[in-house]
Design a protein around this nucleic acid. Structure first.
Lengths: 334, 334
DNA sequence: CTGTTAGCGCGTTCAA
DNA sequence: TTGAACGCGCTAACAG
């Protein structure tokens, strides 16, 4: 199976130069004269030589790859983020290692083992649970936190959730809605909190208040939306619009209402959050707040490679703006 | 930033043994006496020593990671597959490297560079375009092909698409449908072909034939489903059921019909393919053919680590069975 | 501009 | 059972 691969020494011999020169011709061409560089390159082409990254990395005391720790790889929410990450990381010459912190029996131990092993030159952390003081305290490689919770001292890429919720509220108000309900995320979740904050603030600005009986507890899942629909239908006095803290909940909410014979947006207007792919193809197409997921990955990658290049553990965090995508699930009230 | 990490020599000194003994204590404990092993382990614990994988891999002539080449990481279809892959691969002690062959300017070159560099001990290839004779001809690490096309000589994990399509047809027939239409995948695509084959065979078995005017060309996208809906509505003589070669197309198809005032499944029954996550939460919930995506990843990983362990480039290919998930988008005809 | 030399940290002979 | 010594393939320092 194994076929002996060419080494830098083979090239040196063929080109009639020293290994150091071959090395330089490949990694610092400017330091080598035109003619010898030609000879080296010729030998490289003839033999199909490729540098051995393991050896190079050992010598350079680096690993050549970046590690992304994802809480649940099966969640399609991450696919675009990882796509953005992969693109930038590859362009910068790094490999992208991915590990799932959820299927791992002891993710923290694994994380530290990765770091202590120097198996990665940098880390993108999508799981805030791991971003605690132990991580901050540990001598380590650059880390960028790409989620909404976790140690605020760590450099991070975050999405402006509060502003997103506020955008949604203002959109509803602009369409004549004043009776606005809410399906929240799970209690204690940072996303839930910031989206709730934004909602509250924007409603106050519009002279409105969140009514407890119009605030339906959720957990971002489709089932929670179905649940909220039951509660909505049980109300005597119903809100004319419901703001959902995730598109999944909006789907579940709308689906359950439709099954029960209520029309959206005639009976109630709905806004989601995230802009997952199907939004535009539901009936009605779902008005929502888009999180630029690919951009999250790109930014995280850019910041991280910047930190690695600068040999710094710090960089300024970035806030990524969201956007309202108006579709058909919000009705203009007379 | 960098803090000098402990090496095997530090441990050797602390434990009062040679580096060779430390090495053995860690990778072949049986070869070392109880008492010295204890001493070594104590030193390891005290210092928090972790082996340097780069050095180990250089010495062992391996990379310690497995590479997955995905045609489009942004496609959520892969998230569950990668999740299954990551889980198995991590459990076997490998790192998982992921690269996107679509955002790469020259994926084939990158692939070969990866292989020639021995940057991975094995390769899972989700992109059949790269699985041509050049790959087969090259001296290389074990490769497992996890898609429906590409060189059939390569070991592969494939999904029984033909059977899936046949299941769908038989389900429709069992529900009294005899006027069955089809939205196909892109021409020339292997998925398209095998699903078409399965459809044709099952229809023949039922004494039916595919009508050209009921065969709508598609490309797996939501837009193609919308398109097919226009064509369906333009027909005088319409099929009572339409089999879609992807769930996305089914979504687009149903959405467009609903927008135009047609009811599903009253006006037409619909079956999708893939069982993407939202299927169960659409209105109506979409009957579809499930591809066990997580299992695809797991199987591919298992076969690959088996090949690596056996130092073999070959293994028997596997076919993974699909399943019909009955929901509400198929109506029983009287 | 180029060659020589000395490791990076580890695993593995070969002896003892 | 243990240790000494070598080298995996490469790059960085230092001469020349």
């Amino acid at each position: 199976m194994r076929q002996k691969t060419k080494t830098i020494q083979d090239i040196a011999r063929i080109a009639g130069v020293s290994t150091a020169t071959v090395s330089r011709a490949l990694s610092a061409p400017a330091q080598v004269s035109e003619s010898t560089r030609e000879r080296v390159m010729l030998a490289v082409r003839q033999t199909g030589y490729q540098v051995n990254h393991t050896a190079r990395n050992l010598r350079r005391q680096r690993s050549g790859s970046i590690l992304a720790l994802v809480p649940n790889l099966a969640n399609p929410f991450f696919s675009q983020i990882l796509s953005g990450l992969a693109e930038v990381v590859a362009a910068e010459g790094y490999g992208l290692l991915i590990a799932d912190t959820q299927t791992d029996p002891d993710p923290a131990a694994r994380l530290f083992s990765y770091l202590d092993n120097r198996m990665a030159d940098g880390l993108v952390l999508f799981d805030g649970r791991l971003a605690d003081q132990r991580l901050a305290a540990r001598p380590r490689v650059p880390v960028i936190l790409a989620c909404e919770w976790g140690d605020p001292a760590l450099p991070s890429v975050r999405v402006n959730n509060a502003e997103g919720a506020a955008l949604a509220v203002r959109h509803l108000v602009a369409n004549g809605h004043r009776a606005i309900g809410l399906i929240t995320g799970p209690a204690g979740n940072v996303l839930t909190e910031s989206r709730l904050d934004g909602t509250r603030k924007a409603m106050t600005d519009a002279g409105l208040a969140l009514r407890p009986d119009w605030t339906f507890p959720g957990d971002f899942t489709l089932a929670a939306g179905v649940d909220a629909a039951q509660r909505w239908m049980a109300l005597d006095d119903r809100p004319t619009a419901v703001l959902c803290a995730s598109d999944e909940m909006a789907c579940g909410f709308i689906g359950a209402l439709q099954h029960a014979g209520h029309s959206v947006p005639d009976a109630v207007s709905v806004i989601g959050f995230d802009d997952i792919e199907v939004c535009g193809h539901l009936t009605p197409a779902l008005t929502t707040i888009r999180q630029p997921r690919k951009e999250i990955g790109e930014r995280a990658a850019e910041l991280l490679v910047g930190m690695i290049a600068a040999q710094s553990l710090a960089c300024t965090s970035q806030m990524i703006d969201v956007e309202l995508i108006p579709r058909d699930s919000v009705r203009r009230l007379a």
